[in-house]
């Protein structure tokens, strides 16, 4: 079970795995995520479902190596089995035919989770304008798939190596200045700072916006409260009430502080794993 059917390296730190998980593939909807455990002694890490195929029984995930667990995942090979893989978790995105244009914004690794939402929105008959962005050209992922899932695709890189130089928010602001009325809803997924800035732009134009919150999770089923976030002054559990919330109501400062909760321990785990990988490599 949970065999890694295929693995691709998309950049120095970004990988994609296709995992055998027929039950998850059958039930998956845009906006939902899975939790996986690499090995028996691993932790439960949440990753968004980037794509899935119920006929073939696989789920695609796209992840950035940021610490021990994602490093371990990236070091596993095709044909190996993950210890656990559970989902789909969370509430699906509230997509429908809005009878107009929708704005989709994906930043960095956030392009992967925004893709199924764009795809679904287009299928439903919306006119999808997508903006994807990253620090630099190499980190722009899934461009072709995003093109397919959108009616218009715009690209921004911080350093100007590809597309427009600047942030996705610059393009977002331009579009809203031009046709705020026509835009029926907005989704933004990416690093917290990007989602926060997108929310600021949306607020300036009096627009509602969906963001997807990557809070730290354990069970992912509403049992522990590790993932709690403040939305509209109320505590919500990102794993069951979200992960998508109206950005206009999210307390991003608290969310970012909570994400850093285990920084020291995470560094310790990473050092240990890197050492193990080095030793394994030197032993042939």
């Amino acid at each position: 079970m949970y065999k890694i059917l295929k693995k691709q390296k998309w950049s120095d730190t970004i990988f994609s795995n296709w995992v055998e998980a027929p039950f998850v593939a059958k039930a998956a909807q845009p906006g939902q995520f899975i939790i996986l455990i690499t090995k028996e002694n691993g932790e439960r890490i949440p990753l968004t479902i980037a794509d899935s195929n119920p006929q073939e029984g696989w789920v695609q995930i796209v992840y950035q190596v940021v610490g021990a667990s994602t490093l371990e995942l990236s070091s596993m090979n095709e044909g190996e089995n993950l210890y656990a893989f559970v989902g789909p978790l969370g509430m699906p995105s509230e997509v429908e035919n809005f009878g107009g244009k929708v704005l989709i914004i994906g930043g960095g690794i956030g392009i992967a989770p925004i893709h199924p939402i764009a795809k679904k929105l287009k299928e439903l008959g919306n006119h999808v304008i997508s903006i994807i962005g990253a620090r630099t050209k190499d980190l722009i992922i899934m461009e072709d798939k995003m093109k397919e899932a959108s009616n218009e695709l715009l690209i921004a890189t911080d350093d100007g190596t590809y597309g427009q130089k600047g942030f996705v928010t610059n393009i977002m602001d331009d579009i809203l200045k031009k046709e705020s009325e026509a835009i029926k809803d907005i989704w933004a997924i990416g690093p917290p700072i990007m989602m926060k800035m997108c929310t600021r732009v949306a607020n300036e134009h009096n627009k509602q916006i969906w963001v997807s919150l990557n809070s730290i999770m354990v069970d992912g089923t509403g049992m522990c409260g590790a993932c709690r976030v403040s939305v509209g002054g109320k505590t919500k559990f990102a794993c069951v009430d979200g992960p998508e919330f109206r950005g206009n109501l999210v307390n991003f400062e608290e969310m970012v502080l909570r994400q850093r909760q285990y920084c020291d321990q995470e560094r310790e785990a990473l050092v240990l794993l890197e050492e193990q990988i080095r030793r394994k490599a030197s032993n042939g």
């Binding site: 439960r44 021990a68 409260g225």
Partner: peptide, 26 residues
């Protein structure tokens, strides 16, 4: 923490054996 989170980290995820088990606890 909720007790559920604290105990789940410690019992189910064996955080008391961190970093040999990858789940942290403070």
């Amino acid at each position: 923490y909720s007790a559920s989170e604290f105990l789940t980290r410690s019992n189910l995820m064996k955080a008391y054996e961190f970093p040999n088990y990858a789940t942290p606890i403070r």
